[in-house]
Design a protein around this nucleic acid. Structure first.
Lengths: 183, 183
DNA sequence: AATGATTGTTTATTATAACGCACATATGTA
DNA sequence: TACATATGTGCGTTATAATAAACAATCATT
């Protein structure tokens, strides 16, 4: 979906026309000048969020009704297309698979840890949970004062309100799935 | 959801922080200056749609991830709160119950027709269908060259690509439900 | 401490979104 | 025909979004 301006324009015009509103009445309802409304419909303007908000609010439609983003039912994510967040000189790589979405309450990562690499994460807010599943390798973890080892194929869930360390003591790369949950 | 600017700010900062990006790198990825990004995060700016688009696109998140509109699972609509589209000197009133949404392919109205009132609608585009259910009164309709009468409780579906007329020949107000479908 | 690198903020300038008003073009009314 | 009302568009002005560059604050390493 390229060129939102054009998109918003046709959407707005559709909504307005199907209701039989004129630019004048629409301007009155929304509090946006009719000149601006006309320009937006023609794709000649680049509205700000507050303007869009006034329009959506006045017309009693949702924001995305104006944006019209296609809610692709199925989303295929290619790991090689994702640029990871790297630490540990590139030996600790975090791939955001399904990034943070405020509507959802979680996000999903794939993490790769090279041998002899160790990463310590600061404690997160109370209630934040991590769900870790080790897919390849053997993972050493230090959570608060606990120490434990997760074998390949096993999983762990823990409250992340304390500093926690991921460590690869083996000789092969560790790949793990990480689900982060925010309350 | 009041004050979108603030909302967008915290959303953007959340996404950026959870990925460990700095303003600089975010600016590089999105093509939006880091000064602007900072102001948006602090709610001090009122971004345009293209700016939001660049951010969403660069960060590979959906538009509504930034907007964060909570998709209220259940929506209660109060008819008395809806200002109708009136014609026929106020004797023909159309209440948009679930207004046009490009993602959906239909919209829903309640229509009230006072006695002795008649309304003729222009033909719509090919493929557009109307679903009419009469809830109160007795409705006379003229669709193309057809003429018919719909009793209380009955329904009708027709292709709206020809002019069609709604008429109240009785002595009580007609209330009907109208579903408009766009192909 | 001193240096350097990286972070986010502030400032000055440019580009343009938004407004109000005037204009033009219908569409109907006496 | 002339008049009236309502439609959408164009124009000049003002407010402000967006940028680039300078600045300040934080942290790391020597």
């Amino acid at each position: 979906m390229e060129n939102i301006q054009k998109n918003i324009g046709v959407n707005l015009k559709n909504i307005r026309k199907t209701r039989g509103y004129s630019l004048d009445t629409t301007a009155e309802i929304t509090g946006v000048s009719k000149a601006m409304l006309g320009q937006i419909e023609r794709g000649e303007s680049n509205p700000t969020v507050t303007t869009l908000w006034k329009i959506a609010s006045g017309l009693q439609v949702s924001f995305s009704s104006l944006i019209s983003e296609k809610p692709s039912d199925v989303l295929h994510v290619d790991l090689t297309k994702i640029s990871p967040i790297v630490e540990c000189n590139g030996d600790y790589r975090v791939y955001p698979i399904f990034p943070f979405d405020p509507r959802k309450k979680f996000e999903l990562f794939i993490v790769e840890i090279e041998p002899d690499c160790q990463h310590t994460a600061d404690k997160h807010n109370d209630g934040v949970e991590e769900y870790v599943t080790v897919m390849n390798g053997k993972l050493d973890m230090y959570i608060g004062d606990q120490q434990l080892q997760i074998q390949q194929g096993n999983s762990i869930r823990f409250l992340a309100n304390k500093t926690h360390t991921y460590k690869n003591s083996g000789d092969e790369v560790i790949r793990l799935q990480l689900v982060m949950y925010y309350p």
